[in-house]
Design a protein around this nucleic acid. Structure first.
Lengths: 140, 140
DNA sequence: ATTTTATTTGAAAAGGGTTATTATTTGAGA
DNA sequence: TCTCAAATAATAACCCTTTTCAAATAAAAT
């Protein structure tokens, strides 16, 4: 939360109760992949006067600041998750093509690939998004 | 194109001029990442009577059949590219955060990671989508 | 503590990509 | 050729997201 205040100040932006509450919802629901409407519903419990447009604006902002990440599951809406900064990189996602489950993978193991890319394409990698599609252990 | 006819027949679907033309557009524009409107505009040259809704339906169908792949660049629309079946896996994308360029990477090097995931999570991987964000050589 | 000012918000409208509807047409097997 | 399920074109509907704008507010200046 202090990090949010800092990053906002740098850009001349304000720390409002709405922004605070929205970030808290993401923080308190790690491991889930809430979409904007779902986040809106939860934020409203603590912050009943908040508008949906504000939630959209705030999520966009938090994503740009790197505090949360947008996740696209091709279900017609954007989903978000809190960025746990204990890790260097974003975790990966396993998406079951049978039941739709979304599993988080803490393994990274992309160093070799990233090194090869940086060398071969002279591309400075800052971040990545990796999704694997297949069949989860429950469905197999 | 024969592959399309085969896969359609299996599902009891028909090979129409519209579907043929749409797949040809993707085939003839490999390396680009056309969105639906752009594809529509090109298809219209050869197939002027085609409707936009048909293009949407066809792209969805071709994606499901694995002949093309949807690509999400977070620019508010879906983009598609022809699947070159010479390779086993989808290629990766490098996305420049400065100029927006999208570069295709033929390196794979995910075997090690995929093996670890299959073992650790008992998840049978069928496909993957990998995006790297950073600064391309032109912008650096 | 007030004042000031640029930022933020809520509500509602507008936007824009995508999907659904429906009558008509058509591919492909019988 | 005949038959019929599948596909199409046109357009309306959908729905997620963004914009608009007047009112409210955080935070710095006084």
């Amino acid at each position: 939360m202090e990090e949010l205040k800092e990053k906002l100040k740098v850009k001349g932006l304000k720390l409002t109760p709405q922004r605070r509450a929205t970030l808290e919802v993401l923080f308190n629901n790690q491991g889930q992949h809430l979409n904007t409407e779902e986040i809106y519903a939860i934020v409203k419990e603590k912050c009943p006067e908040i508008g949906l447009a504000t939630v959209y604006r705030t999520l966009q902002l938090l994503d740009e600041m790197g505090l949360i990440s947008k996740l696209n599951l091709d279900d017609g809406c954007s989903r978000y998750e809190f960025n746990n900064h204990d890790e260097d990189h974003q975790h990966h996602h396993l998406i079951c093509q049978s039941c739709g489950a979304v599993i988080e993978v803490e393994l990274d193991l992309l160093d070799q690939l990233e090194e090869a890319i940086e060398k071969e394409y002279r591309f400075r990698i800052k971040d990545h998004k990796v999704k694997f599609f297949g069949i989860c252990s429950n469905c197999d």
